[in-house]
Design a binder for these strands. Sequence first.
RNA 1: GCGGAUGUAGCUCAGUCGGUAGAGCGCCGGUUUGUGGUACCGGUUGUCGCGGGUUCGAUCCCCGUCAUUCGCCCCA
Length: 413
Amino acid sequence: MSGLQPPRGTHDLIGDTMRRHHHVVETARSVLETYGFEEWSTPIFEDTRVFSRTLGETSDVVSKEMYTFEDRGGESITLRPENTASICRALVTNGLTQSLPQKAFYHGPMFRYERPQKGRYRQFHQIGAELLGAEGPLRDAEVITMAYDILKALGLSEHVVLELNTLGDVASRQAWREALVAYFRQHADALSEESRVRLEVNPLRILDSKSEQDRALLADAPAFADYLNDESRKFWDDLRSYLTAFGVEFVENPRIVRGLDYYSHTAFEFVTTKLGAQGTVLAGGRYEGLVEQMGGPAIPAIGWAGGIERLALLLEETPSVAAGIAIVPMGDEAVLKGASIVRSLREAGLRAEIETRGNMKKRMERIVKSGASHAVVLGDEELARGVVQLRNLGTREQQEVAISDLVQALKGA
RNA sequence: GCGGAUGUAGCUCAGUCGGUAGAGCGCCGGUUUGUGGUACCGGUUGUCGCGGGUUCGAUCCCCGUCAUUCGCCCCA
């Protein structure tokens, strides 16, 4: 055993872990395609400004969680902590602001320097979707419904609840935020120590506090509903109507504020109670200023990202690998013939292995354990007659088949 | 970044009140050139996480460190 380990918070994806991971991505892909989304791949690292400008300088992600370094040319580079900003950058870079809407999805590693826990890693993987050029709440509802369909296809719809909130437009939020700050300033001495910091840095976060003393204050805090302007209120009403029309259930949770600065109007999270403190499994919202910050026109968009590790942890079962066919040659001559047979099976698109090690009992044990569907036994006697024994390992039925008919017999099976 | 728990074979774990480690499972070979997971025989596995200290001697005691894990913060 070597002393080398993967760096803290990183992990290898092998075997069952990789299969679960892959299953999440491919299940999502098939749903995303029914909605007309296409895969985009952006660089894993970007100019630091892509993230620092857009996520909010004071957000935890930017202030303490980014992997930022100078490259040899002196440029400040950051390993992407999320992908939405990159997608917006790519939209502008590739001149796609002229052909809206764009429906993009992505999956891949993200990097945040955090203390690892179950379902939380420093290199983790997200799958996400962005609808760029989302003209109104119908699109928000549609993109949320798409996320729900993916969770359902993964068999998780029973384990997860959609929590929904509105953050209003910039004007509404600004007015409310000022009222909140004024209120909390008045009661600063009653706030928890952490929330006094939040008051300066990200006051909306106080709403999400788990501290008892903070919660006591929240009851009389200014309600956002009183600050929503007419346009924002209509957006919120329409969103809920459309979601209902799509048949997606949700609960309203006014405490969802999201950690990143760029959201407006719609904010949502799919949460579970099964992952300890890491209950959010997929989350997103509407953002209207990001593309403009990347140097493009003001294009409203709606998107979300799901944590692939968290989704994979929730899967009930590990997807199985496809059953194969095992060739069992007995004797040197038979191995040569077995080689040509296994090749012809593979050329026919069948999954096949040639099993040469140990006595026949040991071979059969290994083959059965491997989940193979059929064994093809080939000894001197069969060789002489140009046939094989084809055994169905499920039914234990065995028949003699001419080598020339083997592919057809297996394809029909 | 803060606080708690844990670290012995590939896996699950036992153990030594300080005398350089064991079980089950797994894995490999054979019984068996001819057929199924459970039979029989044999075999394999460890810097007891890493570094330092105390000691004649440390896997065990002490300190540090790394990793995992739970909670806080924050987030997917």
